[in-house]
Amino acid sequence: MKVLLDIQALKTPRGIVATIVVLLCGLMPIIAPAIGESFYVDVFARTMIWAIAAVSLNLIMGYGGMISFGHAAFFGIGAYTIGILAFHGVTSAWVQWPVALILSALVGLVFGAISLRTKGVYFIMITLALAQMLYFLSVSAQRYGSDDGLTINDRSDFGIGFFNLDDDLTLYYLIFAVLLLCVYVSWRIVNSPFGMVVRGAKSNDNRMQALGYPTTRYKLTAFVIAGVMCGMAGVLDANLEEFVSPDALNWPRSGEMIFMVVLGGMGSLFGPVTGAVVFWLLQDFLANWRGFIGDHWAIIFGPFLILVVLFARGGIHGLVDRLFSRKGGAQ
């Protein structure tokens, strides 16, 4: 992968952080059992799925300036497609996955077309409202367990002997590969002429339009791509958890995704991955603190969020840049 093999990029502080995070994700199935903490393999599998969602959100939020407060909707669509198809006995991944991704794209198209008519706060609110609509739909879907959720008895079946998702390790490395692929795709998009237009529209929409670019159409395309990517995260989540419930698309999930992106560093390629890892590890750490803090960990976590917003501009990656680099960020 060019992004990783670019030695110059690796040498920057944020490159080093990204490398550490990627190595951690990649080697966790070996590290964790070795130190007698195989539990963390599951934690990392889950974390990487959220990282995929965060990477997809970063694409529109970090590079396109579209603050979507309803991104969890796509996560839910991906997961529910797997769940519902499995419920009806369709377990072939060759059917499930394309259906899930196409559905995500279609919903992205509709939601994007509606919400991109608005700007600023209106955009935040309308994406929130549209996602809540789907949330309520999933709660009322009696057939599919409504808010008890839907148990998925069989993971997606690729029909390939050695590539069986029932094997946890295979699933783990599939998630890992998809994560890297998503980062790679983001990188390609961001640096393509298409991405330049989207980024240009973020800083000055009017100018891009004056230059003759139909920015809304560009933004809509980015919105759909991000939706599909997040739908993919949902597909993987349904396979990992073997369960899906409306909770997966409720609005706090969207808020957490935004936080992962900002925590890691918005508009930096690996930022959301770092953000997701730190987010989950920190929550796990705080929630399992015995005593008062463990019982009331949100009293620490809430102010932490505010502090990150106030003092860590550019998230962890930005912070690392400022701490260790005289030249500032390489990007």
Partner: peptide, 28 residues
């Protein structure tokens, strides 16, 4: 939260190595 509940269960089973798991208020 079902996802957090599952993670808490994983922790009990794989990390704390409990012999029996009990409890659960919520169906999901």
């Amino acid at each position: 939260n079902p996802q957090k509940g599952k993670q808490a269960t994983e922790r009990l089973v794989k990390r704390d190595d409990v012999d029996i798991v009990a409890g659960y208020i919520w169906s999901h």
